[in-house]
Every structure is written in C-alpha cells, then in structure tokens.
Computed example of a mutant assay.
Amino acid sequence: MTTLNVRDTTGRTGPAAAPADPARTVPGGRAVARTAAALGRALLIAVPVLLVSTFITFMLGGLTDQDPASVVLGDSATPADVARMREVFGLDRPLPERYALWLWDALHGDLGSSWFTKIPVAQSIAERLPVSLSVAAGALLIAVVLGGVFGILAAVRQGGRLDRAVTVVTSVLATVPGFVAAIALITVFSLLVPVLPSGGWASPSDGLLTWASFLVLPSVSLSLDAAADVARQLRTGMADTLHENYVVGAQVRGLPAWRIVLVHALRNGAGPAVAVLGMHVPRLIGGAVIVETVFALPGIGELTKTAALGGDVPVVQGALLVTIGVVLISSALVNVLLVKLRPAARREV
C-alpha cells in the first residue's frame, strides 16, 4: 500500500492530512451534533410511547360498556336509529381500524367532534389548553426559582442551620397534596387577607396584572412538591460539586464566589435537579385536573373530567392525546438540556 504525499508551502513532503471533521471545524459544530443526537434519541423513544399510549387510550374508550349512540339519542330511540347513529360515529367498524383512522386524522389536526355538543374537539382543546399551560408554566417557573434559590443556599451552607431548615421545609412540602395547598392558600390569601381571587380566570387581554392575579394561587399550589424536590436534588448535586478539584482551583485563582457557585458548580451539579424537574412535568399536567376543579379554572383538565363523566369519548381521547404530546415534548427538551449540562457530553463527538 502506498502513502500519498503532498508538498506544503515550504517544500516539504509528508502524508496527506485526513479530511477535517465538520463537527470539529464548524463553529458550534459539536454542540449542534450533541443536540441533534439527543433529539434523535428522544424521538426514538417518543414515537413508540406515543403509539402505545394512544392505543391504550383509544382501547379504553372503545371497550366502555356505555353505548354512545343510545346515550345521544335517548331512551326513545329505536334499534334502527341506534344502528344508524353507530354508523355515523364509526362504531360499526373493527376497533383496530377505528384506531388507525382516528390516529391518521389526529396527525392531520382532526380530533373529531363531541358526540353531544357537536363542537370540534380541536376547537375545545384550543380554547382550554392555554389555561392549563399557563398554570403549568407558572408552577414550573415557581418550582425552578424557589427550588433553585433554596437548593443553592443549602449547598453553600451545607451542615449549617440554613441547610437543616431547608431540609425540614422541603420534606414537609413534598408530602402536602396539591388540593390541600390550594385550600390553605385560598383561606389565607382570599379570605383572611383578601388580596388574590379565590377562583375563576382572566385572559391576558384583560390586563397582565389581572391575569397574573388569577394565576398565582393555582401555580403556587401546584408547584410546592416540585420546588421541594428540585431544592433537595440541587443541594445534593452541588454539595458534591463544590468539593471538586476545579472548584478549589477556581478559588485559588481568586475567582469571585458568586461566579464559582453560579457558573462552575451550578452547571455541573444541576443535572439531578433538571432530571427530577422533567419527571414532575407529567405531574404538573395531571395535577391540573384537581387544581382546576378547586379554583374553577376552564382548563383542559376540567374539560377532560367533564367529558369523562358524561361519556364523551372523542373529547377524552383528544385531550389525552394532546396531554401526551405535551409530556413527550417536555421530556425531549429535558433530555437535550441534560446533555448540555453533563460535563462528559461536552467531550463527546
């Protein structure tokens, strides 16, 4: 085998250089490659999860003992009328065929219509989803801020009174159910000190302050256990990180304490906290059902509950499909964030 020699500008010859790796030569190439790989892995997980979860959801709706055609038409309907209505609903087809058609239409934005109100399911969800997302986003923000602040303080003051106080408080908050926190907050801030509304909803178009006033109590009641878990995980992760050699080296070089904690230690110790926060996203969305009931919020949780009690299967299936999609998207974003935070990932590719 012969080796191809090339002549450089100085006249010397040597082996030809290997082609440059685009991921190493293009600015930000490694970061783009890591992000793409993380998204690819998340997609490989999300697709089968979506198929299995939606199939189970559709099966539960299809195996119900309640005949929707009879419910819609009432007791005075004849068997012929019921048969015609079942054909309109597509209930005369095999269950796998109905699932395939429903999933195909859902992927094209058609979630069907309510069996009782005839309102398109997509329209009902589009009207209710912003309420639930606002409450969940507010709860997520509060959990990150509170959990982050107290987790960092406990890590910096590990072993001290503040550390022990944070441990006790977070242990208590993690055991408080959302509806109990909601009732307590209403009692304090709507009855004893009436500064916030006890329920209802206002859109941002009514004014940001008005909208925020209706958002505070539901978001806080939904965020307490998530904030407690974030604080504990962040404290544990940063307590170990603060004793690493690179942190000690940064202290020797005279870097400011705030930079050592918030830049070096936080980035490398936040992985467990981000992971547990990702696990709380489904809980925030699922817990919205109870919180929306307590605060009388017109969200997707309340829509799903009302539809389930009334036997409106298309609405339940559509709402669950959208909820599953939100959970999978948030999980993919958390996976990408974990890749960016993990120190070993920055040396890959």
Rank of each mutant, 00 (worst) to 15 (best):
G147P: 01
V248R: 12
V276F: 01
I186E: 11
H280F: 14
I119Q: 12
A265E: 10
T25C: 00
T64E: 13
A80E: 15
H108E: 03
I119L: 11
A184I: 12
P194Y: 12
L43A: 15
F214S: 07
G254C: 07
V195F: 02
G325M: 14
T236A: 15
V248A: 14
A165I: 10
D65Y: 00
D67W: 00
F189P: 02
G148D: 10
I125D: 10
P282T: 13
M1T: 05
R161I: 15
R34T: 14
R232G: 03
R346Y: 10
Q66D: 09
D163Y: 03
A31Q: 13
S132H: 02
A344N: 12
L309C: 02
N5C: 05
G249R: 09
A226Y: 00
T10R: 13
R164N: 09
Q251S: 13
I142L: 13
L255P: 03
V327P: 04
R93Y: 08
T13W: 11
R84T: 12
V313C: 06
V316N: 11
A165R: 03
V131R: 06
G199W: 00
R84F: 08
G151W: 03
L51R: 00
V248C: 01
E87H: 06
I119T: 15
G207W: 02
S76T: 12
A126F: 01
V145L: 14
D229K: 02
G249I: 07
G299K: 06
E244D: 14
T117V: 08
A319I: 04
F214D: 04
V82S: 06
S219G: 04
G109M: 12
G286T: 10
G254S: 07
A250V: 03
G138S: 05
I329Q: 02
L192M: 07
V121E: 08
P177A: 11
D81G: 11
P314L: 11
A226W: 02
G286Q: 10
L101K: 09
A36R: 10
D110C: 04
T323G: 13
V195G: 11
L192N: 04
K340Q: 09
S203H: 08
P27D: 13
A288N: 05
A46Q: 06
F295L: 07
G287N: 06
A122W: 00
A288D: 13
D81C: 03
L341H: 03
